[in-house]
Simulated assay, not measured.
Amino acid sequence: MKHQTQTRHDDVSGQVIGALINLSGRQRMLSQRIVLHVLLASHGEPGALAVVKDCLATFAATHAELVNGNAHLPGVFSDALRQLYFGTRRADDRIQQFIAYANHAVASLESDSIDAREEIAALVAQATPLLELLQAITLAYQNEMRGIEMASLRRQNEIAEQLGNISMQANIVALNARIAAARAGQFGREFAVITTVLADIIKEMDQLIHSVVDPSGTNDASRRSSAQRAAPVATAG
């Protein structure tokens, strides 16, 4: 199977990885259905062979999408997945081998070949190892999802820290402006109103930051910034 066009890891969204997790999970179910219905077909179960063909076509097409990608999916997009599919685990080769065994079993059953029993036994022998491999693939996609979530959390914390520093500086400026307005007496009354409004805006901005970035109130960076803002240092002389 040809390798897909490389997609940058950072370009893959959590929503896309969620779709990949669902597809890889469905592959586990399909692999079991393929083996089960091959066995049922070997015992003359009506319609079992048709189920095998349908499941096998979906299984093969989905594997191609997971590896090579399509208009909506990136294919194998990370070093961890490339190692799993094309490295020591040889997931791509092993899945292709399972597909080949299944096709041989179907052909033998359709032609009532004397090799059918042998072909079915070879397929059944692949069932458990393949199921374990497909589970490892699903776990790999779940790890990619956790990586994206951690990166998003780090970005949120960095933004919260930056906004906290800006808010702290704005608080200091507003306090110094109020001091300057008080010193100006009646000439600073209008300016004092402006600084009060500014202080209210800063307070609302702080509350918005905390509610969006850290609704549980457990963000260390936000707590540190809040503590700093609680005791600004006046610098106006």
Rank of each mutant, 00 (worst) to 15 (best):
212 V>H: 03
162 Q>G: 02
232 P>F: 01
142 Q>T: 07
115 D>A: 07
121 A>K: 14
59 F>R: 01
116 A>Q: 05
117 R>D: 04
82 R>P: 00
198 L>A: 13
128 T>Q: 11
172 I>C: 01
138 T>M: 05
113 S>I: 03
126 Q>H: 14
187 F>Y: 05
157 N>Q: 04
23 L>K: 10
50 A>F: 13
133 L>F: 10
33 R>T: 12
125 A>I: 11
214 D>K: 06
50 A>V: 15
87 G>N: 10
102 A>F: 04
58 T>E: 10
24 S>K: 00
146 R>K: 09
152 S>P: 02
40 L>M: 11
236 A>C: 09
145 M>D: 09
69 G>W: 02
50 A>S: 13
174 A>T: 01
227 A>S: 04
31 S>Y: 10
234 A>G: 15
211 S>H: 12
156 Q>G: 06
83 Q>N: 12
231 A>Y: 07
237 G>T: 10
127 A>E: 15
116 A>I: 07
90 R>E: 15
130 L>A: 08
90 R>T: 05
5 T>S: 04
122 A>M: 04
162 Q>S: 04
162 Q>I: 05
84 L>M: 14
221 A>T: 14
44 G>N: 13
186 Q>I: 10
124 V>L: 05
41 A>P: 01
123 L>W: 01
226 S>M: 08
227 A>I: 15
141 Y>Q: 05
40 L>A: 13
154 R>Y: 05
52 V>L: 11
27 Q>R: 10
98 F>P: 05
50 A>W: 09
102 A>P: 04
69 G>C: 04
101 Y>H: 14
54 D>V: 04
116 A>E: 00
169 Q>I: 02
56 L>A: 00
211 S>P: 04
54 D>A: 15
54 D>R: 13
145 M>F: 09
142 Q>V: 15
182 A>G: 03
131 L>R: 05
213 V>T: 13
114 I>M: 14
216 S>I: 09
122 A>P: 00
188 G>C: 08
133 L>V: 14
95 I>R: 10
88 T>S: 06
45 E>P: 03
165 N>D: 06
125 A>N: 09
47 G>P: 11
215 P>R: 03
18 G>S: 09
125 A>H: 15
198 L>N: 12
89 R>S: 15
6 Q>P: 04
174 A>M: 11
222 S>D: 05
182 A>T: 13
137 I>H: 00
195 T>H: 03
137 I>A: 06
32 Q>P: 01
131 L>N: 09
63 H>M: 06
103 N>P: 08
200 D>C: 03
186 Q>M: 00
199 A>L: 07
